[in-house]
Simulated scan of single mutants.
Amino acid sequence: MMQLKIERIYTKPVDLDGYRILVDRLWPRGISKVNAHLDWWAKQVGPSNELRKWFGHDPAKYDEFKQRYLAELADNPALTELKEKVTAQLATTNVILLYGAKDEQHNQAVILKELLDKQLGNH
């Protein structure tokens, strides 16, 4: 069975083992588009600039960030597009949601994966 995974975009791809989607609104610093090995940049699904700046990757704000981000996603048509793309790709390959944040537990990709897993019946 194919898997939905998350990974830092700075992690060197082992063997490009899946369909790679960047879920950051801003392009990650210090990585070229060639080295990113992206299949799709879903920038519209990333947190709004206001929310991203408010959060500032502060783990103490993560629970509130998660609530606010999920509220943004509820009204965001880009989430439907992401869900459709992920569903289609999972039929034949793994899907990797890529993010630039240093914190591997407190970022929007973690929230997106949880949400997609729930909506796709993976959990």
Rank of each mutant, 00 (worst) to 15 (best):
I6D: 07
Q108T: 01
D17W: 12
G46Y: 13
S48D: 06
K66N: 06
D75K: 09
S32K: 14
G100L: 08
K5C: 11
G56E: 06
D75Q: 11
F55R: 10
D39C: 03
N35T: 08
Q3S: 11
A91T: 11
I6T: 11
E7W: 14
R29C: 12
L90N: 01
V14M: 15
P77G: 04
K83M: 08
L4H: 03
L22I: 10
H123W: 12
L79A: 08
A36H: 11
W27P: 00
K33A: 12
G100K: 13
F65L: 11
E72C: 05
G46R: 07
W54A: 02
Y19S: 00
L22V: 09
V34N: 15
K66I: 02
R25G: 04
L79G: 06
L73N: 07
I96P: 01
D15P: 01
N94C: 04
A42Q: 03
A78C: 06
L22Y: 13
H37N: 13
Q119M: 14
E72W: 13
A74C: 06
Y99K: 09
D24A: 06
D24R: 08
L38W: 15
K53Y: 15
V110C: 11
L51R: 06
Q44T: 05
V45T: 02
Q44G: 04
V23N: 11
N107I: 05
K102T: 01
D63G: 04
L16T: 04
N49K: 13
L16F: 10
K61N: 07
A60K: 14
Y62L: 09
L112A: 06
R29Y: 13
Q3L: 12
H106C: 03
E64Y: 04
S32L: 11
L73S: 07
E50G: 05
L22A: 12
Y62K: 10
Q108C: 01
E7A: 09
W27V: 00
L97C: 00
P28V: 05
R29V: 08
R25C: 05
N76V: 08
V110M: 09
H57T: 03
Q105W: 11
L97V: 01
E72S: 05
V45D: 01
Q89L: 02
L38S: 08
K61Y: 10
D15M: 10
A42G: 04
Y62S: 06
P13H: 08
K43P: 00
E81Y: 10
T87W: 12
G46T: 03
A91F: 14
S32D: 10
I21V: 15
M1E: 13
K113C: 07
L82G: 00
I6S: 09
L120V: 05
T80P: 01
K61D: 02
A60P: 01
K33H: 15
R20G: 02
Y69P: 00
R8A: 05
Q3F: 14
D15I: 04
V95E: 04
D17C: 09
D75P: 00
N35H: 15
R52V: 03
Q119C: 07
A71T: 12
T93I: 04
S48Y: 13
Y19F: 11
K12E: 06
Y19N: 01
D15R: 12
W41D: 01
R52K: 12
K33T: 10
V34I: 15
P77Y: 07
E84W: 04
R52A: 07
